[in-house]
Nucleic acid binder design. Structure first.
Lengths: 159, 159
DNA sequence: CACGATTATATCGTGCACGATACAAATATA
DNA sequence: TATATTTGTATCGTGCACGATATAATCGTG
């Protein structure tokens, strides 16, 4: 392909990823509005529903987000009574995040969301097998790209 | 899959899309910093390099962005002498966007960026054929998801 | 034990995204 | 031709993202 040809929007791989990411967030919105959550807050809850009592850093390493994003976000969630923040006794620098009853209870209400989204995304054109393949490529890219940016690597997930 | 199982971060398709989108934007940053552009500004230029003298709306329909995002963004680009804004004579409501010489000239400097990114994203694990397949799925999703949200549809691209 | 380096979190500034809303120009229709 | 509706753009408020920077706690090493 000629150099200038690669600048055509149509030939970009990055643009569809960017667009789909935004469109998916928008597709989540009606479901998350009912729970009073934003998309990023929902991601934090996904992490905490799997494992409670995590540090801000740990949540960030799982979501590939830094503390300059997470700190205010988690504070907003604390304000909304979804979780509590408390300094660790072992290490005064560490802030441990714990779900409240309200935060824990949202898990049930959220449990139908993934299937609803999946139903939206699978139709005659896109089958589940496509999505599995897609996820494989994306996961490889996360590895490649998060290795390049030294901050918040994806490999720090071993306890 | 059990309902609660679908809430596992690992089983989400939305999360890797969201992460890769952010990581790709970050991967662009060193290249775009040299040109004094943000990622979204680069997208606007991609559109204008293909076709100049477009309205704000038209740019938005190509990028799936609304005017509440584009208006201030385009004004910042005008401030940076990348483009000009002028009301259409035919329709006083319409703002026509035109590249300046500086904006036009950036095309040459940007022409190597797509290949650089592609080199980052293809390796032993991810081949070009994977990316072509990926793009097909994503394009289907853009159609599905932008049809659902009535604002700025993707089908309005016919002149 | 001292002290420089590292680590965990937080703050600040900037630029998106986007829902809600405003407003003027253009269009449709009674 | 009035006026109701639609259309194109802009503004406002909120919540991310993220680079740069600050600060306090902890660790490493002499």
């Amino acid at each position: 392909m000629e150099k200038q040809e690669q600048l055509r929007l149509e030939n970009q791989i990055c643009f569809p990823i960017y667009s789909v990411s935004r469109l998916i967030t928008k597709a989540y919105k009606p479901y998350l509005d009912k729970l009073g959550l934003t998309y990023t807050q929902y991601l934090v809850l996904l992490v905490l529903w799997e494992e409670n009592n995590l540090s801000v850093n740990k949540i960030g390493s799982k979501l590939l987000l830094n503390t300059n994003t997470l700190s205010p976000l988690i504070k907003r969630m604390e304000k909304n009574d979804l979780l509590t923040r408390s300094r660790s006794i072992d290490d005064e620098r560490t802030v441990l995040v714990n779900l409240t009853e309200k935060g824990e209870a949202l898990k049930d209400q959220a449990s139908s969301i993934p299937q609803n989204l999946l139903n939206t995304l699978t139709n005659d054109e896109v089958e589940l097998s496509d999505i599995i393949l897609l996820k494989k490529t994306l996961d490889s890219w996360i590895n490649i790209l998060s290795r390049n940016s030294e901050t918040s690597s994806v490999d720090e997930n071993n306890e």
